[in-house]
Design a protein around this nucleic acid. Structure first.
Length: 298
DNA sequence: GGAATCATGTGAT
DNA sequence: ATCACATGATTCC
């Protein structure tokens, strides 16, 4: 990754093609969430936040509610510890009874966005992406600009990269499969974005194909995440039990953190046992945003 | 309620 | 081998 990736990086500055209204709202929403939660002690008022952003309170209120399906106040409540605990404690793990006979490859009805997944064979994994062609592109999403990566077998990567921070996100992803050949191809990746973030299109008629590229352990963790229903959450130790290694919760955390297809593989639905949001590769604020958005759209 | 500390499995170097 | 973790339980204040 030197001269080769230089060329690719140059292409990244290509502006995204399509703009959705949701995409433009996110920056505002993100900053509101940040102010609301960073020092929640101060409980900043809507007026104070609006002033900071240079907008009128009513305008801000409207944008936020349109995006989240929830007023800022309700949103704040939806991401408190209290609510998270309810999310967790509700019912006995939905994970446990869901069968694991799928094995490492094969179709399945998983989470609300219907997904068929296949994993790389051990040989393919060892090649670190060698012989693989990966097409990638940047597109707006409800949670900021997204980087999409796909092989001809299906979606292989989804990352978040705010405007101006495209290069680090690209490198973060490309580093995982260093021997693959990367081609910037907005047209190839655009259909995935439309598909993923439009809930109307979540149906089983035509499942979304994803390709899980990772170690055996990681793939098992990601498959487990795929079984978490929309608007629900589990703990890292729940996942550990689900894959048959109840003492490996910490290792699960590491594997969850390595999830290459964020949002689609719902790693944001993994919480600490206390209900605390412990971490997120693309920023805790974004994790709150996604969780709150799901609360408002359940 | 924290802070400090330990047990712990995986993956990268 | 060793180290860093998106953990969790225990044991102190």
């Amino acid at each position: 990754m030197n001269a080769h990736s230089q060329i690719d990086l140059a292409k990244i500055t290509t502006p995204a093609i399509d703009i959705t209204p949701d995409g433009s709202d996110y920056e505002t929403v993100r900053r509101v969430i940040e102010m609301l939660t960073v020092d929640y002690r101060n409980q900043p008022s809507l007026e104070a936040i609006a002033a900071e952003l240079g907008q009128s309170p009513t305008q801000l209120q409207k944008v936020f509610t349109r995006w989240a399906g929830l007023s800022p106040k309700a949103f704040l409540q939806a991401i408190t510890l209290d609510h998270a605990k309810r999310l967790l404690g509700k019912e006995e793990l939905p994970l446990l009874e869901a069968s694991y006979e799928l094995g490492l490859s094969g179709p399945g009805r998983l989470h609300d966005l219907f997904v068929t997944h296949e994993a790389m064979s051990p040989g393919e994994w060892k090649a670190r992406g060698g012989g693989l062609v990966i097409r990638y592109g940047f597109h707006p999403s409800p949670f900021g600009q997204a980087l999409v990566m796909a092989t001809e077998r299906g979606l292989s990567g989804l990352a978040f990269a705010d405007i101006g921070c495209e290069a680090p996100a690209y490198e973060d992803m490309a580093r995982r499969w260093p021997n693959a050949e990367y081609i910037h191809d907005q047209e190839a990746t655009a259909p995935y974005i439309r598909r993923i973030f439009d809930r109307q299109q979540w149906s089983c008629d035509q499942p979304l194909k994803v390709v899980l590229i990772g170690t055996d352990f990681q793939v098992r963790v990601w498959q487990s995440l795929l079984k978490i229903p929309f608007g629900k959450a589990v703990t890292y130790s729940d996942v550990a039990s689900d894959i048959g290694q109840p003492t490996a919760s910490r290792a699960v955390g590491a594997a969850v953190g390595a999830n290459p297809i964020s949002f689609v593989v719902p790693c944001h639905r993994a919480l600490g046992k206390s209900g605390a949001l412990t971490g997120y590769h693309w920023g805790l604020t974004r994790k709150r945003a996604i969780l709150g958005w799901e609360a408002g759209n359940a």
